[in-house]
Amino acid sequence: MRRVFLWCALSLALLLQSGPVGAQALDKVTLGTNWVAEAEHGGFYQAVADGTYKKYGLDVTILPGGPNANNRILLPVGKIDFYMTSGLLQAFDAVAQNIPTVTIAASFQKDPQVLMAHPGQGIEKFEDLKKLTILVSKEGMSGYYQWLKKDYGFTDKQVRPYTFNPQPFFADKRTAMQGYVTSEPYAVETQGKFKPVIFLLADQGFSTYSTLIETRRELVEKKPDLVQRFVDASMIGWYNYLYGDNKAANALIRKHNPEMTDALLAYSIDRMKEYGIVDSGDSMKLGIGAMTDARIKDFFDKMVRAGIVKPGLDYKRAYTLQFVNKGVGNELRPK
Rank of each mutant, 00 (worst) to 15 (best):
D262L: 13
F170R: 00
K223F: 02
W35K: 12
G287C: 10
K247D: 07
D245M: 04
G65R: 09
H41T: 12
R72T: 01
D279Q: 01
L10N: 02
I62E: 03
P258V: 04
P67M: 02
W35Q: 10
D270Q: 15
V159H: 14
L148A: 05
A96I: 03
L15M: 15
F92L: 01
K195S: 04
K310I: 06
Q113W: 14
Q146K: 15
G143V: 01
K310H: 07
R295A: 14
D128T: 07
I296R: 01
D262Y: 08
Q167Y: 02
T85V: 11
A23L: 08
P196K: 02
L252N: 15
P64D: 09
L321S: 01
T133Y: 05
V181Y: 13
F92W: 00
E221P: 10
K222M: 11
K302N: 15
W238A: 06
S268F: 12
V324L: 05
N257H: 12
D27I: 05
P185A: 04
T61E: 11
Y267S: 03
L26Y: 09
L12F: 06
I288D: 11
K138M: 02
G237M: 13
K125C: 02
D279A: 03
S137C: 01
G312D: 05
A176W: 07
V159L: 15
I277R: 15
A306E: 08
G42R: 13
Y152I: 03
G244V: 05
I288A: 13
E331N: 12
K273D: 06
K54L: 03
A306P: 09
A91F: 00
Y243P: 06
M260E: 12
D293T: 14
F92Q: 01
S210F: 04
D59C: 14
L212S: 07
T101C: 13
T163S: 02
E38Y: 15
R229M: 07
L135G: 00
V102C: 02
G78N: 07
V188Q: 03
D282E: 10
V29Y: 09
A306K: 09
S18C: 12
S207C: 08
Q204C: 08
I269T: 14
E40M: 14
N70F: 05
P168H: 10
T163R: 02
T215E: 09
R216F: 06
Q121E: 03
F154D: 09
G66C: 11
L212V: 05
I213R: 14
Y180A: 08
S234L: 11
A318C: 00
L75D: 00
L115C: 10
L201M: 10
H118Y: 11
C8S: 11
S183Q: 11
Q204I: 07
T175V: 10
V304T: 04
G22M: 05
F108L: 13
Y45L: 11
Q90G: 09
I308C: 00
L89C: 01
Q24F: 06
G244M: 03
T103E: 00
K79I: 08
A69Y: 03
Y180G: 04
L12Q: 07
G329I: 00
H256V: 00
Q146V: 10
M1G: 10
S268V: 10
S207M: 09
S18A: 15
A96W: 04
R72I: 00
H118G: 09
S137P: 01
Y267R: 05
G237Q: 13
N68M: 08
E221N: 13
A233E: 03
F164W: 04
G19I: 06
V227M: 13
E139Q: 13
D314Q: 15
